[in-house]
């Protein structure tokens, strides 16, 4: 499990890669929290393009980051949820709370990138 992160136009883009389960979630969470805190990021895109497997531990990660970013008056959106993850996202109801975009470019535009 890896999280590749970079910043474009003050938007933090986090590309999750590999298998996101209870075993891997803690180090990724710490890594992401640290980056958000260090950079004082208010706009975050989470991309699931590189995710091979995810369970409810991943949902916990998304909801947790959404909560902490919202508390700091920030915005977070999701993108690139593949077909095999779609049912997990739908069953969980998470898409009623957090916006999902097809592509990273769409997600960045939603956060104000021209």
């Amino acid at each position: 499990m890896k999280a590749e992160m970079n910043v474009i136009d003050r938007i933090l883009i986090i590309r999750l890669q590999g298998e996101l389960d209870h075993h891997s979630v803690e180090s990724v969470r710490n890594n992401i929290e640290q980056t958000i805190a260090d950079g004082n990021h208010r706009k975050v895109v989470l991309s699931f393009k590189g995710i091979d497997f995810m369970d409810s531990s991943g949902l916990g990660l998304i909801l947790g980051r959404y909560r902490s970013i919202s508390q700091h008056d920030g915005q977070m959106v999701l993108c690139e949820v593949s077909e095999n993850l779609r049912k997990l996202f739908e069953v969980s109801g998470i898409l009623k709370i957090i916006s999902l975009y097809d592509t990273e470019a769409d997600a960045c535009r939603a956060l104000g990138r021209k």
Binding site: D55, S56, S57, L59, G60, L61, L63, K87, V91, S92
Partner: peptide, 23 residues
């Protein structure tokens, strides 16, 4: 119950059983 978790401290989503039931 969906979203119920006994361990909110661990940032659990409370969706584990709901997911098993659906899948």
């Amino acid at each position: 119950l969906p979203l119920y978790t006994s361990r909110p401290d661990l940032e659990r989503s409370g969706m584990g059983i709901t997911i098993m039931e659906s899948f």
